[in-house]
Amino acid sequence: TPAPPPGSGEHPIQFNYSLWFSKRTPGKQTTSYDQTLRFVGSFASVEQFWSYYTHLSRPSELSGHSDYHIFKEGIRPMWEDDANKAGGKWIIRLKKGIASRCWENLVLAMLGEQFMVGGEVCGAVVSIRYQEDILSLWNRTANDHVTTSRIRDTLKRILNLPPNTIMEYKCHTDSLK
């Protein structure tokens, strides 16, 4: 389902994005990641984004093992997608209680084109887990150090994280091994 064109008076965004949700059911895993992934919708304007966002539970209110994914339209939130194959992600582990605020700041920076890395950004994920929550920002080219450094610096600036927060970069090919 492609995003509808921005309506009259709406504010278009640089790239259209799609919102996805996934939840792992407790117990034995009989379904693949692909099967747990639910497409929520695509948007092409700031107002369309908020129309989805305001109807969703905040990340901190989700139970169990849940993820929101916001990726550029046409990129599936998985390593195997062509846009992600040579890419990687910055991973930020958060103490419980701050995920909703940090996720919103991350998403707004991405939709507002604050990263200044051209078309390098693929998408963002918030992962709700039992002990901690995890933010990740995916980009196309893992070995482009200028881009990954710029993304890291922007993440630090926009997230306003506690000083002891650890940021880690992972290539998707390492994750596959």
Binding site: H11, P12, I13, Q14, V46, W50, T54, L108, G112, E113
Partner: peptide, 21 residues
């Protein structure tokens, strides 16, 4: 072409727009 850039404050303001359903 031109890049469409928005800051956080502006995006939050749009949240209250009557266009946001």
């Amino acid at each position: 072409g031109t890049r469409i850039v928005y800051d956080r404050a502006f995006l939050l303001q749009c949240r209250n727009s009557p266009l946001t359903k």
